[in-house]
Amino acid sequence: MPEGNRVSRISVRGFAVASATAVTTVGAVVGVASGADQGGSNEPVEAAGTTTLLADIPAGQQVQQASLTEQVQAQSDAADAHARQGAEQAARVQAAKDAAAKKKIADAAAEKERLKKLAAGKGNPDASFPTQATYTIAEVKAMAKQIVGSGQYACFSNIVSHESGWRYTAQNPSSSAYGLVQALPGSKMASAGADWRTNPATQIKWGLNYMNSRYGSPCEAWSFWQVNHYY
């Protein structure tokens, strides 16, 4: 065969393969059409490139996808729980701050009211009186009214009446308590004056300071005394 008309084996083989493929494809199409004409299966033929069904995914990959989904959900749940805990903690902290602020306001109001009551019957703890050899109960009471003040005098008087009967030299036979307010021991009153044994004014000043510092006022000291029978 002349060289110009020669067909290589590779070209012939490629043509044969292409021809066979074409014939096979045509046959498949004809066969499908023929089957449809002859009352064969009416199921649609799935075209190439359609969506892959879950059943088409290997079992191992299905398990892997399910595991990843569970992990994502677990992380989301954990984040939500953490956010709730943070919000609850913040709410508790704020509630504590609010309660502390309210208590502070209430305490300030109570202290203001207490001072107001004291001011209404304010006495003169620095009042001075002539020294005498002896003092009557009336004189001692007059001193107390001036030192203690009218607002607290009744309560102060109630305590002194029960403790000593307004006798500034009263001494408890079973203890070292002494004076109008029965200081125990009596020598405590030396902080108000060296003449604590014989000067009722010194005893009154010490007693008033004791009631104010320990209970807030003579009336609060009297309230305590009524329950406990001491102060």
Rank of each mutant, 00 (worst) to 15 (best):
A221Q: 08
A192T: 07
A192F: 10
A36N: 14
S213W: 04
S150H: 05
K112N: 01
A81Q: 09
S223H: 10
A81G: 07
M143V: 06
T24Q: 04
E111I: 01
A36E: 15
G207N: 10
F15H: 04
G4M: 01
V26I: 08
R214D: 13
K103R: 04
A133K: 12
A16Y: 00
K97G: 01
N42W: 10
M143A: 04
A194I: 03
Q85V: 13
G86K: 12
S128T: 15
V227T: 13
L115F: 01
Q182G: 12
V30K: 00
A66Y: 15
K102G: 05
K104F: 00
T24V: 07
A100E: 04
K104V: 01
G4P: 03
P173F: 06
P125E: 04
A81R: 08
Q203V: 02
Y230W: 15
V26T: 03
S34H: 01
T136C: 13
V32G: 06
D37M: 08
G86C: 10
A81F: 01
G179N: 07
V63C: 13
K97M: 02
E46P: 15
Y210S: 15
E70F: 12
P125I: 03
Y168I: 05
N209A: 15
D77A: 15
A106G: 07
Y231K: 07
L118R: 12
D77N: 15
N158E: 03
V30C: 02
V181K: 09
R9H: 00
I147G: 07
R6D: 08
V45I: 12
A190T: 11
A91L: 07
P44N: 06
M143I: 05
E113N: 04
T51M: 05
A127I: 14
K117I: 09
V32N: 02
V140D: 04
V140K: 03
F224N: 14
D77F: 11
K117E: 12
D37S: 08
V7Q: 10
G49V: 00
A192H: 10
N228G: 11
K116R: 14
Q132G: 06
G193M: 11
R214P: 04
E3R: 14
N228A: 13
Q94V: 00
K141A: 02
K104A: 06
